[in-house]
Design a binder for these strands. Structure first.
Lengths: 218, 218
DNA sequence: ATCGCTACTGACACTAATGTATATATCTAA
DNA sequence: TTAGATATATACATTAGTGTCAGTAGCGAT
């Protein structure tokens, strides 16, 4: 009974990925959509079209749209974690502020972290800690990690602690802002804009190192 | 034929606002929704319920959901404009960096400007200049306005111009970031958090004034 | 080779949100 | 008081987007 309708046109030959690869491709496409058009642009059908699959496949891999978004969050969080720990292991940050800022800028921009964070922040009231991953807490912890790393093992006063935390906070804020609205703030063309941003970061790192290394005020 | 169904329960007595008041109430509610739950939370039916009206009334006043959002944008832009020009007229900003920052923080936070800007930025690729209002351009222009105001009428070198623009840029970025993810960065309770933020702003303004007033480097 | 697992698909059901049509109530003005 | 204008309501249409289901096809293992 109920004979299955045969498609009139032969459908394109099916490509079968491993589950892992499929998940990665889907996440990449979703990330791309988010970067291009914001949260509203994360549509299962669109993402599926980008990857070249049918949208139920996404649901097969992630369970639901929300599952996909959670996976997106989790991936970004882990990327940030790895990034930061690599950065901290590599060198004592204090003596090369520029590299720290550049690295931070890269993570915020190219990995699309700034957009994700901003999105979390907007949903914050209902921001649930998903499967053990609490993005806000992790960002906070990471910034504290950087603070302690900069301060090293030397004994330090409360004022100095605050000084360092303000410095890190400023750096994070600035790089976050740059990633999100840097384009808005600088009117120049693409090429010029890049060098301008580099100079801005260099200027900022100098400012920070100066201020933090020599707490001459109050 | 087709006799109109009479409502069984007497509906609440209708309150009739002026168009202006209605628009304002609706915009307020929409803004509130945006602040609470992010862009996705801007739902006509929910907003209507908040105001105490039926959702077609919103469509009557704004034409469409998109019209509502554009009105929201426009209102925020004008608020920012007014805010900034008032700030600039009031005093030469250079000698009181704190007030400038506080004012900026207020606009970003309480007026919900940061969220709107972030939202624009996310949709940026397709960000259309709506009915003569181009939010990114306006933000950019305003920051340039501040720059010129700070620099005053004195003759100034290119380096100094860049210095000032970097300073303003940093201030805007920091206040923008604070408004969006300030909560994430500071773990403390609400009371303590506020004073912490004030101290951060004070610190930053000092930093900026110092650096800009005395360009001793490079 | 063929067998089983599962990635994948097309068709469809369901929901929720926007938008439309038309009637009604309230305010202002004469 | 009446008349016009319009802010508002109810009911419905439409669409778009998520999620379900049952069947298909590619790949690895025996």
């Amino acid at each position: 009974m109920a004979e299955q309708k045969k498609p009139v046109v032969a459908s394109a030959p099916r490509r079968r990925r491993s589950a892992e690869v499929a998940r990665r491709e889907i996440l990449d496409a979703a990330q791309h959509r988010l970067d291009e058009g914001g949260p509203d642009a994360i549509r299962l059908q669109e993402i599926a079209r980008d990857v070249g699959i049918a949208h139920p496949t996404i649901l097969h891999h992630f369970g639901s749209r929300d599952g996909l978004i959670q996976a997106l969050d989790a991936r970004a969080i882990h990327a940030l974690s790895d990034d930061v720990s690599a950065m901290l292991q590599g060198r004592r940050a204090q003596d090369s502020g520029v590299e720290l800022l550049e690295r931070l800028a890269h993570t915020m921009n190219d990995l699309g972290l700034a957009r994700l964070i901003a999105w979390w922040a907007m949903r914050e009231p209902n921001a649930r800690a998903l499967e053990g991953i609490d993005p806000p807490a992790l960002v906070r912890n990471i910034s504290q990690l950087i603070c302690s790393q900069i301060q090293g093992d030397e004994a330090h006063s409360t004022e100095r602690e605050e000084l360092v935390s303000f410095g890190v906070r400023l750096a994070v804020m600035a790089m976050f802002g740059e990633a999100l609205i840097g384009d808005i703030m600088s009117p120049a063309g693409a090429e010029e804009r890049d060098t301008e941003r580099h100079r801005f970061r260099a200027w900022l790192s100098e400012l920070l190192v100066e201020k933090i290394a020599d707490p001459s005020d109050d």
